[in-house]
């Protein structure tokens, strides 16, 4: 099953999701060609990718389900006369078809779709497929884009420094009422900094309601739904409203003084005790790792 993997790069370097795509594409069993578009002109890029997919006789074209990939994949699919099996968290060849698994209803159910369209256009949720070592050596072809689209990127504004959005962070450290007062969020901010720009500080509804943190930082049913690689819940008891917003995180760590707190039921790893002793120690250890 010959597959085309569409990678993403930033500042000339492949992003982690690119290796995830290569790894997952290989699961389909055939040779995998990797390409990358060196332009922000997605219309032009989509045209070139569609041409490439047709000319190369690919059985499947695999994208990332990032902001970029979600924009690009349907443009290519539309040109190929097919739909996208979007946001897959698992995939496998099934004879001549592909079976993809995708979370639906806000992750409350998993849908399995059988894709018989040719080519099959797929997009993959980031942070789900663990890249294997072979993927690290991938040398993608840089696609030459000739036609120019009608939509032009005139500017890319960087997000303000130091304010990584919780919805985008790979690591989230969230605090709850256990922090006791707003100033104590400093210990969480220090831990976030130790992760070197990959981490953001989140908050439970209780502390947002109390005015300790901004609503934009709130994780949960009425806040943001997040699924980072690592979620560290500090001093959060784990009301269902909060769990609804973070239960799809890959790894959950809970730090709480109450060993019966519901948060420990969803945590992969729990530490019971005084957060004001535990968190600074953790910060120290993470700094050593990233030292």
């Amino acid at each position: 099953m010959k597959t085309l993997a569409v990678l993403e790069q930033r500042d000339g370097k492949l992003r982690k999701v690119s290796f995830e795509v290569v790894t997952a594409a290989r699961r389909l069993g055939g040779p995998v060609d990797a390409v990358v578009c060196d332009t922000t002109d997605r219309e032009g890029c989509a045209a070139a990718l569609a041409d490439k997919a047709k000319a190369g006789g690919y059985r499947a074209v695999v994208f990332t389900a990032t902001a970029t990939g979600r924009d690009l994949a349907p443009r290519v699919a539309g040109r190929l006369g097919v739909g996208v099996a979007a946001d897959l968290t698992d995939l496998a060849a099934d004879g001549d078809a592909i079976i993809g698994t995708r979370p639906v209803y806000a992750g409350k159910a998993l849908q399995k779709v059988r894709v018989t369209a040719r080519p099959a256009v797929l997009s993959l949720r980031p942070n789900i497929f663990t890249p294997d070592e072979a993927a690290a050596g991938v040398k993608p072809e840089t696609l030459s884009v000739t036609s120019s689209g009608r939509v032009k990127v005139s500017e890319i504004k960087p997000a303000p420094a130091g304010t990584l959005d919780v919805a985008e962070a790979q690591v989230i450290i969230s605090g709850g009422r256990g922090l006791k007062e707003p100033a104590n969020f400093k210990v969480l901010e220090e831990l976030a900094q130790a992760f070197g720009g990959r981490a953001a500080v989140g908050a439970s509804r209780a502390v947002v309601d109390a005015g300790w943190r901004a609503h934009a930082d709130q994780v949960g049913q009425t806040g943001k739904t997040v699924s980072p690689s690592l979620y560290i819940a500090v001093g959060i008891s784990g009301a269902i409203q909060h769990l609804a917003g973070m239960r799809t995180s890959k790894v959950i760590v809970a730090i709480n003084k109450d060993k019966d707190a519901p948060i420990f039921k969803v945590a992969d790893y729990g530490v019971v005790g005084d957060l004001f002793e535990i968190v600074p120690k953790l910060t120290e250890e993470i700094r050593k790792l990233h030292g």
Binding site: H215, Q218, Q221, S237, A239, I240, Q241, P262
Partner: peptide, 17 residues
């Protein structure tokens, strides 16, 4: 069932603000 979980199960999604 804790009271917070109870409220969630009432379907209450009143705007926080």
């Amino acid at each position: 069932v804790s009271k917070v979980d109870a409220v969630f199960k009432s379907g209450n999604a009143t705007r926080d603000t």
